[in-house]
């Protein structure tokens, strides 16, 4: 049973639940405003799509349960979790701490998790790479990235 749970059945259930939730809330949201004469109601097409999603994820769920094989594939879950956490944290801290502060750290940590052991080369590549990227985007293309507070750039 546990094997079954940790298979794609979980995923199809998640899709099913989300689609149902969105469909229901779309009915609430569509007590809304302005509809142009002759136009289809703004939520109609999305509701159709959600209905398709419900049907599809439902069928996939049923077919998965029927098959009753499953379990998670073999993988380095620790490494994966670590990288996911690094990337998510980097995203959250991007605006508060600035691009130049967050990115090299994220790159260095990711390289380490992926197996690269030479800290010096790792750091040099990360800092140089981020610096080049910064120069290209912020200076050459004039596309501002979140600045480091206190540094102003």
């Amino acid at each position: 049973m546990k094997k079954l749970l940790f298979s794609s059945a979980l995923l199809w259930m998640a899709f099913l639940a989300t689609s149902i939730f969105l469909l229901v809330s779309s009915f609430e949201q569509s007590d809304a405003t302005f509809v142009l004469p002759g136009d289809a109601p703004p939520f109609l097409v999305s509701q159709l799509i959600l209905t398709c999603l419900i049907l599809l994820s439902g069928s996939l769920l049923i077919s998965r349960l029927v098959q009753a094989s499953g379990g998670l594939p073999d993988a380095d879950w620790d490494a994966l979790a670590a990288v996911v956490v690094i990337v998510c944290t980097a995203g959250v801290l991007l605006k508060p701490l600035g691009f130049l502060a967050v990115s090299p750290v994220a790159a260095i940590l990711t390289a380490r998790v992926l197996g690269y052991r030479n800290w010096l080369i790792n750091a040099v590549v990360a800092v140089a790479g981020v610096a080049c990227l910064y120069l290209l985007l912020v200076k050459a293309a004039r596309l501002p990235l979140p600045p480091v507070p206190g540094l102003g750039f």
Binding site: I86, V87, A90, G91, L94, K95, F99, V102, S103, P104, A106, A107, I108, T110, A111, R112, L114, G115, Y116, I121, N122, V125, A126, G129, V130, L133, L137, A141, L143, P144, L145, P146
Partner: peptide, 25 residues
């Protein structure tokens, strides 16, 4: 180049690349 370093650089590239579209988190 060691794959770990290449993959690691994708992280800053992804953050920057997605941010500069509309400057929106």
């Amino acid at each position: 180049v060691p794959n770990a370093l290449v993959m690691a650089m994708i992280v800053p590239l992804s953050l920057a690349g997605s941010y500069v579209i509309r400057f929106s988190m």
